[in-house]
Design a protein around this nucleic acid. Structure first.
Lengths: 340, 340
DNA sequence: GTGAAAGCGCTAACAA
DNA sequence: TTGTTAGCGCTTTCAC
């Protein structure tokens, strides 16, 4: 069913049908209703391609996530999607696979398919590449910081102060030998956490010991191996990790080594994964506002998309804060952050 | 940059340019190379819409998942995506939100956007609706069974025999008062598990007690509440659940009630979530071949897409088996299914 | 208020 | 081997 058939059936020209679709106010009520009725009962939908060819808009936005199996990224994506859907847009979710190759080829696909905008999370792409896309008129918003990239609209989390809160909590709980298991990606976040960690230790007159800081893979396995190695040579009384997954692995390593958590060693994570109040003991961690990150990111994007292009506004930076979730793994008596 | 400009620059007609794009073998090598060079350095990409208007193909497939935040569904989706990407297709992932309304509106979007095929997981849609889409020429493949729907290509898991294996294991471990916490969706799976559960009990001369079977929400919370209620009135020595999430909740409820797992009550789940060997005690469960479900689903779909349409083959049903993961929550001595 | 027709960028049938 | 041109389905300008 196409516009021609509708026109024929209604005894009007295609132009008139097109008008009731796009500018109904310019059509006489009687004709409009007659045509609309035919459209409705034929369940006629304008051809997507033909429309695109004219409008050059797809009402589609692309999202690139570092990893599709990571719930936190998907929560951000859902935030983006929620806003997009509400605006009548649909989203492509692409798996960045944590490497710039995959990101790149997905980006190319999105570009080819003429998406109206792109949200990229924790990208490992070069600034140069992003500029290229942007220059072609496709607005880009970043979620998650990357120190090597500047001048884009971005939603970031203040990891440094998040880490500071956490380390302060550990120090206040009597810990002094605080180890840091640092995941390698996202790099910027990890480094910010390191900074916050150092700040608070120094403020409290605690020496930052090189041996207590260790780089590990950002995964359960990475945490397991990192913690195992750490306790083999050092005697931390607390372990702070840059992700909850690392913390899970660390917990398991301690358990296997017969070290009690939190009695012997406290553990604190970062990210508040869904499972962090299911592990035993429940994990103290910092909650990131994932969904809101997506929502804000989408809003930034739509500001760009809906911009008439005349005024080139300064790129905006939205900084969100994380929130402490104190649970049992740090030995706190109360169990804040209940099951539900 | 469009095909006309390329043609002009190369001093040929648009047809020739179009040919080097689509049927390069029909172009004289010299012209072909000259044109190709111009295409390359101009980074010319054919207009998506114009191509679509001619081919009426999008090289896009739609995936509808029940819930975007559920890793298992996303793993299946990744299986689909892996195959699709390899074939040069890109995927839309749509959030079904566990209800047919959301599924429906997403489906409509996919249809409008002329996707070449659709994979729907654990759908709650009516068969009627699916037929409609199919009739419009969009191939559909189902992943996850729905007893109310028949006659589609489908990938399913043999949950009944999976449940039988599990209950046999529980019985063999000396349990007789085996409770079943049954999540309400996906409904068919849940009912198949129930069937398997009954079968094995009967085979072993164990009465199926109504009070030991309880319907709960398919979530951690559902499991928590269900287990809490169950142990308030009954004395099960094992609890089998239709999902790992329910099992997590049940574990927590027992813990809160001072009941030891597995010493007092064994717990077995279904699904082998990523966290199931991180909870304490590690959860005995059945592993479903998520990724393969997606891969097989995609293959079925591409069979349909690539079909010339002449022969209408019988819809295929692919049945996959789950695999026991025996861990500590059932009191088994060995810890099969290690950390990694 | 409505219709005729040009044009969006491309493909492919037909002609040369 | 290459060019000319109709046509994919729609929107919109320009006339009436």
């Amino acid at each position: 069913m196409n516009i021609k058939q509708i026109a024929k059936e209604a005894g009007v020209s295609v132009a008139t049908v097109s008008r009731v679709l796009n500018h109904p106010e310019n059509v006489a009520p009687a004709t409009r209703e007659k045509i609309q009725k035919i459209i409705d009962q034929a369940e006629y939908k304008p051809n997507w391609f033909a429309q695109g060819l004219n409008f050059n808009k797809t009402k589609t936005i692309g999202i690139i996530v570092p990893h599709i199996l990571n719930t936190m990224y998907m929560e951000i994506a859902k935030g983006v999607e929620d806003v997009a859907l509400q605006k009548g847009y649909i989203t492509f979710i692409g798996n960045g696979e944590m490497n710039s190759n995959a990101e790149n080829s997905y980006l190319q696909q999105l570009e080819m398919r003429r998406v109206d905008g792109i949200v990229i999370m924790f990208t490992s792409l070069e600034e140069e590449r992003l500029r290229e896309i942007e220059k072609k008129g496709v607005p880009i918003v970043l979620i998650g910081e990357n120190k090597k990239i500047e001048g884009f609209n971005i939603v970031r989390v203040d990891c440094k102060s998040g880490a500071e809160k956490m380390v302060k909590h550990l120090v206040a709980s009597g810990h002094r030998e605080i180890a840091l298991l640092q995941g390698s990606d996202p790099e910027t976040e990890s480094m910010d956490i390191y900074e916050g960690y150092c700040n608070v230790l120094r403020e409290n007159g605690i020496e930052v010991k090189k041996n207590l800081v260790s780089q590990v893979a950002n995964s359960i396995e990475g945490g397991y191996l990192g913690a195992k190695k750490m306790i083999a040579s050092e005697n931390p009384d607390a372990i702070f990790t840059t992700s909850d997954e690392i913390a899970y692995g660390a917990m398991d390593a301690l358990k296997d080594a017969g070290v009690r958590v939190p009695e012997d060693v406290a553990i604190a994570g970062y990210g508040n994964n869904r499972m962090s109040n299911m592990v035993e003991p429940k994990l103290t961690t910092a909650e990131l506002p994932y969904h809101m990150m997506g929502v804000y990111g989408a809003r930034l994007l739509f500001d760009l998309i809906e911009d008439d292009g005349k005024n080139k506004p300064e790129p905006k930076v939205i900084t969100l804060q994380s929130k402490m979730k104190v649970r049992k793994s740090c030995g706190h008596k109360e169990r804040i952050g209940e099951m539900f």
